[in-house]
Computed example of a mutant assay.
Amino acid sequence: MGTRDSRRIPGPDKSLPYSLLQKYERKSFLGEDRMRRDGRTAVDPRKLFMSLGVISQAKGSSYLEVGNTKVCCGVYGPMDVQRGSDFKMSCQVVCEVKMAPFSCPVRRSPQPDKQQREMSRQLKDALETVIILDKFPKSQIDVYVTVIEDDGGLLAACITAAGLAICHANIDVYDILIGASLLWHDGILYADPTHDEEENEGSEVHSTVSEGGQLTIGMMPSYANGQVALLVQCGQISADNLCEGLDAAVEICQRIYTLSRKTLMDYVEQSLIENSGP
Protein backbone atom coordinates (compact mmCIF):
# COMPACT_ATOMS: atom_id res chain seq x y z
CA MET A 1 0.00 0.00 0.00
CA GLY A 2 1.33 3.42 -0.93
CA THR A 3 1.21 6.50 1.25
CA ARG A 4 -0.36 8.72 -1.40
CA ASP A 5 -3.61 10.39 -0.35
CA SER A 6 -6.16 9.58 -3.04
CA ARG A 7 -8.82 11.89 -1.57
CA ARG A 8 -6.82 15.09 -1.82
CA ILE A 9 -4.38 16.77 -4.17
CA PRO A 10 -1.11 16.87 -2.21
CA GLY A 11 1.38 19.58 -3.04
CA PRO A 12 5.09 19.02 -3.52
CA ASP A 13 7.06 18.49 -0.31
CA LYS A 14 9.77 21.03 -1.19
CA SER A 15 7.64 23.84 -2.57
CA LEU A 16 8.44 27.47 -1.69
CA PRO A 17 6.14 30.51 -1.62
CA TYR A 18 6.95 33.15 -4.19
CA SER A 19 7.46 35.76 -1.46
CA LEU A 20 10.68 34.02 -0.35
CA LEU A 21 12.15 34.34 -3.85
CA GLN A 22 11.79 38.10 -3.96
CA LYS A 23 14.83 40.30 -3.43
CA TYR A 24 15.28 41.37 0.16
CA GLU A 25 14.89 45.08 0.79
CA ARG A 26 15.60 46.74 4.10
CA LYS A 27 12.36 48.28 5.39
CA SER A 28 11.59 50.19 8.54
CA PHE A 29 9.19 48.59 10.97
CA LEU A 30 7.40 51.93 11.45
CA GLY A 31 5.66 53.84 8.68
CA GLU A 32 5.35 57.57 8.25
CA ASP A 33 2.44 57.57 10.71
CA ARG A 34 4.68 55.85 13.32
CA MET A 35 2.56 52.70 13.08
CA ARG A 36 3.64 49.14 12.32
CA ARG A 37 2.44 47.21 9.31
CA ASP A 38 -0.39 45.58 11.24
CA GLY A 39 -1.64 48.89 12.63
CA ARG A 40 0.01 48.69 16.06
CA THR A 41 2.33 51.12 17.74
CA ALA A 42 5.80 49.97 18.75
CA VAL A 43 4.75 49.09 22.32
CA ASP A 44 1.33 47.55 21.64
CA PRO A 45 0.99 43.73 21.87
CA ARG A 46 -1.20 41.73 19.53
CA LYS A 47 -4.73 40.60 20.27
CA LEU A 48 -5.17 37.40 22.29
CA PHE A 49 -7.63 34.54 22.25
CA MET A 50 -7.63 31.74 24.85
CA SER A 51 -9.68 28.59 25.20
CA LEU A 52 -9.58 25.58 27.54
CA GLY A 53 -10.60 21.96 27.21
CA VAL A 54 -9.97 21.63 23.49
CA ILE A 55 -8.46 18.10 23.77
CA SER A 56 -10.93 15.67 25.30
CA GLN A 57 -8.36 12.87 25.85
CA ALA A 58 -5.97 15.09 27.81
CA LYS A 59 -6.32 15.89 31.48
CA GLY A 60 -5.67 19.55 30.71
CA SER A 61 -5.52 21.39 27.41
CA SER A 62 -5.50 24.90 26.01
CA TYR A 63 -5.59 26.74 22.72
CA LEU A 64 -3.95 30.14 22.28
CA GLU A 65 -3.91 32.69 19.47
CA VAL A 66 -1.51 35.63 19.59
CA GLY A 67 -2.23 37.48 16.39
CA ASN A 68 -1.72 34.84 13.72
CA THR A 69 0.39 32.60 15.97
CA LYS A 70 -1.70 29.57 16.93
CA VAL A 71 -0.63 27.04 19.56
CA CYS A 72 -2.39 24.05 21.12
CA CYS A 73 -1.18 22.34 24.32
CA GLY A 74 -2.16 19.07 26.02
CA VAL A 75 -1.13 17.90 29.51
CA TYR A 76 -1.20 14.25 30.64
CA GLY A 77 -0.60 13.11 34.19
CA PRO A 78 0.60 13.00 36.86
CA MET A 79 1.25 9.34 36.12
CA ASP A 80 3.70 6.69 37.26
CA VAL A 81 7.17 7.01 35.81
CA GLN A 82 8.04 4.63 33.01
CA ARG A 83 10.18 1.61 33.71
CA GLY A 84 13.85 2.13 33.22
CA SER A 85 13.71 5.86 33.89
CA ASP A 86 15.63 7.49 36.70
CA PHE A 87 13.88 7.29 40.06
CA LYS A 88 13.25 10.65 41.73
CA MET A 89 11.26 11.64 44.76
CA SER A 90 10.04 14.76 42.97
CA CYS A 91 7.91 14.92 39.84
CA GLN A 92 9.50 14.67 36.41
CA VAL A 93 8.32 16.97 33.62
CA VAL A 94 8.54 15.82 29.99
CA CYS A 95 7.97 18.51 27.34
CA GLU A 96 7.76 18.24 23.58
CA VAL A 97 7.20 21.13 21.18
CA LYS A 98 6.25 20.01 17.70
CA MET A 99 5.68 22.30 14.74
CA ALA A 100 3.19 21.24 12.10
CA PRO A 101 4.65 20.95 8.58
CA PHE A 102 2.34 23.75 7.40
CA SER A 103 3.07 26.10 10.32
CA CYS A 104 5.83 28.04 8.51
CA PRO A 105 6.23 29.55 5.02
CA VAL A 106 8.76 26.78 4.24
CA ARG A 107 7.41 23.29 4.85
CA ARG A 108 9.00 21.72 7.91
CA SER A 109 10.03 18.12 8.29
CA PRO A 110 7.88 15.98 10.61
CA GLN A 111 11.04 15.04 12.49
CA PRO A 112 11.99 17.42 15.34
CA ASP A 113 14.87 19.72 14.46
CA LYS A 114 17.28 21.74 16.60
CA GLN A 115 14.84 24.63 17.12
CA GLN A 116 12.07 22.36 18.37
CA ARG A 117 14.39 20.48 20.72
CA GLU A 118 15.72 23.74 22.13
CA MET A 119 12.22 25.11 22.67
CA SER A 120 11.22 21.88 24.39
CA ARG A 121 14.16 22.20 26.79
CA GLN A 122 13.39 25.85 27.54
CA LEU A 123 9.73 25.10 28.18
CA LYS A 124 10.70 22.21 30.48
CA ASP A 125 12.95 24.50 32.54
CA ALA A 126 10.13 27.03 32.92
CA LEU A 127 7.50 24.47 33.94
CA GLU A 128 9.79 22.83 36.50
CA THR A 129 10.02 26.21 38.20
CA VAL A 130 6.24 26.74 38.29
CA ILE A 131 4.95 23.26 39.24
CA ILE A 132 5.17 22.20 42.90
CA LEU A 133 7.18 19.08 42.12
CA ASP A 134 7.36 17.79 45.70
CA LYS A 135 3.61 17.16 45.73
CA PHE A 136 3.92 14.48 43.03
CA PRO A 137 6.71 12.08 44.07
CA LYS A 138 7.63 9.23 41.74
CA SER A 139 5.35 10.72 39.08
CA GLN A 140 5.65 12.16 35.59
CA ILE A 141 3.80 14.96 33.80
CA ASP A 142 3.81 15.02 30.00
CA VAL A 143 3.30 18.33 28.20
CA TYR A 144 2.84 18.32 24.42
CA VAL A 145 2.67 21.58 22.47
CA THR A 146 1.65 21.65 18.80
CA VAL A 147 2.38 24.78 16.78
CA ILE A 148 -0.35 25.26 14.18
CA GLU A 149 0.98 28.53 12.79
CA ASP A 150 4.13 30.49 13.58
CA ASP A 151 3.83 34.26 13.14
CA GLY A 152 6.33 35.43 15.73
CA GLY A 153 6.63 35.25 19.51
CA LEU A 154 6.42 31.46 19.36
CA LEU A 155 8.26 30.60 22.57
CA ALA A 156 6.22 33.10 24.57
CA ALA A 157 2.99 31.68 23.13
CA CYS A 158 4.06 28.12 24.02
CA ILE A 159 4.86 29.21 27.58
CA THR A 160 1.46 30.86 28.05
CA ALA A 161 -0.41 27.93 26.51
CA ALA A 162 1.44 25.42 28.69
CA GLY A 163 0.74 27.48 31.80
CA LEU A 164 -2.99 27.51 31.04
CA ALA A 165 -3.07 23.78 30.29
CA ILE A 166 -1.25 22.97 33.55
CA CYS A 167 -3.85 24.95 35.53
CA HIS A 168 -6.68 23.31 33.58
CA ALA A 169 -5.25 19.90 34.56
CA ASN A 170 -5.65 20.78 38.27
CA ILE A 171 -1.92 20.47 38.88
CA ASP A 172 -0.62 22.44 41.88
CA VAL A 173 1.48 25.40 40.78
CA TYR A 174 2.89 28.49 42.46
CA ASP A 175 1.25 30.76 39.91
CA ILE A 176 0.08 30.90 36.30
CA LEU A 177 3.02 30.86 33.88
CA ILE A 178 2.91 33.74 31.39
CA GLY A 179 5.25 34.46 28.46
CA ALA A 180 6.11 37.68 26.61
CA SER A 181 8.52 38.59 23.81
CA LEU A 182 10.27 41.81 22.75
CA LEU A 183 12.54 42.93 19.93
CA TRP A 184 14.99 45.80 19.42
CA HIS A 185 15.47 47.22 15.93
CA ASP A 186 17.56 50.32 15.19
CA GLY A 187 17.49 51.20 18.88
CA ILE A 188 13.66 51.08 19.11
CA LEU A 189 11.83 48.64 21.38
CA TYR A 190 9.02 46.62 19.76
CA ALA A 191 6.57 44.59 21.83
CA ASP A 192 5.28 41.22 20.65
CA PRO A 193 7.09 41.07 17.26
CA THR A 194 5.68 39.24 14.26
CA HIS A 195 7.51 36.59 12.23
CA ASP A 196 8.49 39.11 9.52
CA GLU A 197 9.96 41.45 12.10
CA GLU A 198 11.92 38.63 13.72
CA GLU A 199 13.23 37.45 10.36
CA ASN A 200 14.24 40.97 9.27
CA GLU A 201 16.02 41.59 12.55
CA GLY A 202 17.82 38.24 12.46
CA SER A 203 18.96 38.59 8.85
CA GLU A 204 20.69 41.95 9.34
CA VAL A 205 24.28 42.34 10.43
CA HIS A 206 24.55 45.01 13.11
CA SER A 207 27.49 47.27 13.54
CA THR A 208 29.11 48.11 16.86
CA VAL A 209 26.94 51.24 17.13
CA SER A 210 23.53 49.85 16.27
CA GLU A 211 21.77 47.60 18.74
CA GLY A 212 19.40 44.79 18.01
CA GLY A 213 18.19 41.59 19.57
CA GLN A 214 15.30 39.67 21.04
CA LEU A 215 14.09 38.94 24.55
CA THR A 216 11.61 36.30 25.74
CA ILE A 217 10.61 35.83 29.36
CA GLY A 218 8.35 33.46 31.25
CA MET A 219 7.23 34.72 34.63
CA MET A 220 4.79 34.24 37.51
CA PRO A 221 3.27 37.71 37.95
CA SER A 222 1.71 37.18 41.41
CA TYR A 223 4.32 34.91 43.02
CA ALA A 224 7.20 36.54 44.91
CA ASN A 225 6.38 39.94 43.41
CA GLY A 226 6.79 38.65 39.88
CA GLN A 227 9.37 35.85 39.76
CA VAL A 228 10.97 35.19 36.37
CA ALA A 229 10.98 31.47 35.52
CA LEU A 230 12.75 31.76 32.15
CA LEU A 231 14.73 34.45 30.32
CA VAL A 232 16.12 33.99 26.81
CA GLN A 233 18.03 36.88 25.22
CA CYS A 234 20.01 37.10 21.99
CA GLY A 235 21.69 39.93 20.11
CA GLN A 236 23.51 43.09 21.17
CA ILE A 237 21.57 44.90 23.89
CA SER A 238 22.94 47.36 26.42
CA ALA A 239 22.21 46.99 30.12
CA ASP A 240 19.95 50.06 30.18
CA ASN A 241 17.89 48.86 27.23
CA LEU A 242 17.67 45.39 28.75
CA CYS A 243 16.26 46.80 31.99
CA GLU A 244 13.77 48.85 29.98
CA GLY A 245 12.79 45.75 28.04
CA LEU A 246 12.27 43.74 31.21
CA ASP A 247 9.94 46.41 32.57
CA ALA A 248 7.96 46.38 29.31
CA ALA A 249 7.82 42.57 29.29
CA VAL A 250 6.56 42.51 32.89
CA GLU A 251 3.80 44.96 31.96
CA ILE A 252 2.76 42.75 29.03
CA CYS A 253 2.74 39.68 31.29
CA GLN A 254 0.48 41.51 33.73
CA ARG A 255 -2.03 42.16 30.94
CA ILE A 256 -1.96 38.56 29.78
CA TYR A 257 -2.20 37.37 33.39
CA THR A 258 -5.47 39.26 33.88
CA LEU A 259 -6.96 37.67 30.77
CA SER A 260 -5.66 34.21 31.77
CA ARG A 261 -7.28 34.40 35.20
CA LYS A 262 -10.56 35.52 33.66
CA THR A 263 -10.44 32.64 31.16
CA LEU A 264 -9.85 30.10 33.95
CA MET A 265 -12.58 31.57 36.15
CA ASP A 266 -15.10 31.61 33.30
CA TYR A 267 -14.31 27.97 32.50
CA VAL A 268 -14.78 26.93 36.14
CA GLU A 269 -18.08 28.80 36.40
CA GLN A 270 -19.33 27.25 33.16
CA SER A 271 -18.32 23.78 34.35
CA LEU A 272 -20.17 24.26 37.64
CA ILE A 273 -23.29 25.36 35.81
CA GLU A 274 -23.17 22.36 33.48
CA ASN A 275 -22.55 19.89 36.33
CA SER A 276 -25.30 21.30 38.53
CA GLY A 277 -27.94 20.19 36.06
CA PRO A 278 -31.59 21.33 35.95
Score class of each variant (00 low, 15 high):
Val145Ile: 15
Ser90Tyr: 13
Lys47Met: 11
Gly212Glu: 00
Gln254Ser: 08
Gly226Thr: 00
Val106Met: 01
Pro110Phe: 08
Glu96Met: 07
Met220Thr: 14
Val268Asp: 05
Gly152Arg: 07
Glu65Arg: 14
Ile159Pro: 05
Trp184Glu: 05
Glu274Phe: 02
Gly179Asp: 08
Leu52Arg: 10
Ser51Phe: 03
Cys234Val: 12
Val228Gly: 00
Ser120Pro: 00
Ala224Cys: 11
Asp134Ala: 07
Thr69Ser: 15
Ile171Trp: 01
Pro110Asn: 10
Asp175Ser: 12
Ala58Thr: 11
Trp184Met: 15
Glu65His: 13
Leu230Glu: 03
Met119Gly: 00
Met265Thr: 07
Leu189Val: 12
Leu48Ser: 08
Arg255Met: 06
Asp196Ala: 14
Tyr144Asn: 06
Arg107Thr: 14
Ala161Gly: 13
Arg117Gln: 08
Gln270Ala: 15
Ala224Ser: 07
Ser85Lys: 14
Val81Asp: 04
Leu177Thr: 11
Met1Gln: 01
Lys59Thr: 14
Lys23Arg: 12
Thr160Phe: 09
Pro10Lys: 00
Pro101Thr: 03
Met1Asn: 02
Met35His: 04
Glu197Lys: 05
Arg121Ala: 13
Ser210His: 08
Gln57Asp: 14
Arg36Pro: 13
Gly179Ala: 04
Glu201Trp: 15
Leu215Val: 10
Leu231Met: 14
Thr258Tyr: 02
Met219Lys: 01
Arg34Leu: 15
Asp172Cys: 02
Gly163Asn: 09
Gly152Gln: 05
Arg83Tyr: 07
Ile132Asn: 11
Val232Phe: 11
Leu64Met: 12
Arg4Phe: 03
Val93Glu: 05
Met1Phe: 07
Gly153Leu: 03
Asp38Pro: 11
Asp5Met: 00
Ile166Lys: 12
Tyr76Lys: 12
Phe29Gly: 00
Glu244Lys: 03
Gly11Ala: 08
Ala165Gln: 06
Thr41Ile: 01
Ile237Met: 11
Leu154Asp: 04
Val81Cys: 08
Met265Phe: 06
Asp33Ser: 14
Ala249Cys: 07
Val209Glu: 05
Gln22Glu: 15
Asp247Phe: 00
Gly60Leu: 09
Gly84Cys: 09
Arg37Glu: 14
Cys234Tyr: 09
Asp86Trp: 09
Met89Phe: 08
Ile178Ser: 01
Arg26Val: 12
Lys114Trp: 03
Lys59Asp: 15
Val143Tyr: 10
Leu21Pro: 00
Pro101His: 03
Ser139Pro: 06
Gly245His: 03
Cys73Arg: 10
Ala42Asp: 10
Ser61Cys: 08
Gln22Thr: 02
Met99Asn: 00
Asp113Thr: 07
Thr263Arg: 09
Ser61Lys: 03
Val54Tyr: 05
Gln122Ala: 12
Glu244Asn: 08
Leu272Asn: 08
Glu201Asn: 05
Gly277Gln: 11
Cys73Leu: 08
Gly213Lys: 02
Val43Ala: 10
Gly202Lys: 10
Gly31Asp: 14
Met89Gly: 12
Asp38Phe: 06
Val268Ile: 07
